[in-house]
């Protein structure tokens, strides 16, 4: 699965970077950065549940999981 960030919605509240710290880190301003450097970072299968929770908990609904 890939994690898509809608940057027009993201407010850098930092929930996803806590729930998915294996995939995301925070930049200088609190916005998520993909550790793998991809535009839509890859979510390995063991982290899919955490990714789903991040999508669900994002206060701005800025995250989407997609299969490719």
């Amino acid at each position: 699965m890939k994690l898509h960030v809608d940057w027009t919605a993201c407010d850098g509240r930092g929930v996803c970077t806590e729930l998915l710290e294996e995939v995301l880190v925070e930049d200088d301003w609190g916005f998520p950065v993909a550790r793998d450097g991809q535009r839509s970072p890859t979510v390995p299968p063991p982290l899919e549940a955490a990714a789903r929770q991040a999508v669900d908990r994002c206060p701005m609904l800025a995250l989407k999981l997609r299969s490719r």
């Binding site: 940057w7 027009t8 993201c10 407010d11 301003w29 609190g30 916005f31």
Partner: peptide
């Protein structure tokens, strides 16, 4: 003016 990394990163 929409995306956080751009509006913060480009001026820096």
């Amino acid at each position: 003016g929409q995306c956080g990394p751009c509006i913060n990163g480009l001026p820096r």
